[in-house]
């Protein structure tokens, strides 16, 4: 059954015009805004926020790339120009709290913006969802995921880079699913191959693509679902599963999508 209620996505400008301010700014990110697969994650997260009547807003066309790929590729100029422009916009709206579905934006906004004048509380959507569950505001049961075997791929910029390991795992457990760990997980998790601006270029010569190596490892756990919390990891793992011709049996999903589906939103 396809749910057809339209999602509500207020912008900061609209809120400001009404003299209101949101409880949180949802930083959508470039992938979440433009990439077809990632847009589904964005919408799933918005559906959950709408369902909870959570007062949030997005920057819409006033949002611009966080600068992460430029910075990691060595273009510090471009990064700082992006950062300062974004900070100026957000400071003008007096933004205090930001949630994002992209670990790269999460990391950059949280760790690299403060020095440049952007002081915000930044959280990843898996952290926000888990604390909403802890507060009792969001209730989930397994739904279609009950008893399913799910493995979680740690995004480098969520895990090692910021030591968020537990929130996404708690969410999986909240879905009454069976969490199976890969050999290399948590602080020793193996990269999907997209970080450091690799997403935007062909890989160097080697014996194998990084995402294939990681997908093989994920498939070794014989999962029904490979869960992640990053639009780039999602792309890499989806490509990997297709390469292994396993897309019929194994789905690659973001935790926001799983919660939204479990709640039939």
């Amino acid at each position: 059954m396809e749910n057809t209620t339209r999602i509500q996505v207020p912008t900061m400008a609209e809120m400001m015009a009404k003299g209101e301010s949101p409880d949180v700014l949802f930083w959508v990110g470039c992938a979440g805004s433009f990439d077809d697969r990632a847009k589904k994650i964005t919408k799933a997260f918005v559906k959950i926020l709408n369902h909870l009547d959570y007062k949030f807003a997005v920057l819409g066309t006033e949002e611009s790339c966080s600068g992460d790929p430029a910075k990691r590729a060595g273009n510090e100029f471009l990064f700082q120009m992006q950062a300062m422009a974004n900070i100026e916009v957000m400071n003008a709206y007096e933004v205090k709290r930001i949630v994002t579905t992209c670990p790269h934006c999460f990391n950059t906004l949280k760790n690299e913006y403060p020095e440049l004048g952007g002081h915000f509380e930044v959280i990843h959507h898996t952290q926000m969802l888990q604390s909403l569950i802890d507060e009792g505001r969001l209730t989930v049961d397994g739904g279609v995921y009950k008893g399913k075997k799910i493995t979680f791929h740690d995004p480098c910029y969520l895990g090692r880079a910021n030591e968020v390991y537990q929130a996404p795992r708690s969410l999986i457990q909240n879905l009454d699913a069976e969490l199976v760990e890969m050999k290399r997980c948590k602080s020793r998790g193996f990269c999907c191959g997209a970080g450091g601006a690799q997403m935007f270029k062909e890989p160097e010569k080697g014996s194998k693509d990084v995402n294939i190596e990681r997908t093989e490892e994920a498939l070794e756990t014989k999962p029904d679902i490979i869960a992640t919390g990053c639009p780039f990891c999602n792309t890499m793992m989806t490509d990997g599963v297709k390469n292994k011709e396993k897309e019929e049996q194994v789905k690659v999903l973001d935790l926001a999508e799983m919660i939204a589906t479990a709640k039939d939103l």
Partner: peptide
């Protein structure tokens, strides 16, 4: 930088995203 990364830089500079999408379409989703 490798050519593809230079393209990415240009996109970020002009469109505020690493791909060639118009900044005005950012909320179309």
């Amino acid at each position: 930088a490798p050519t593809e990364l230079n393209t990415m830089f240009t996109n970020v500079e002009n469109n505020g995203a690493p791909w060639q999408f118009s900044a005005m379409d950012r909320l179309n989703w």
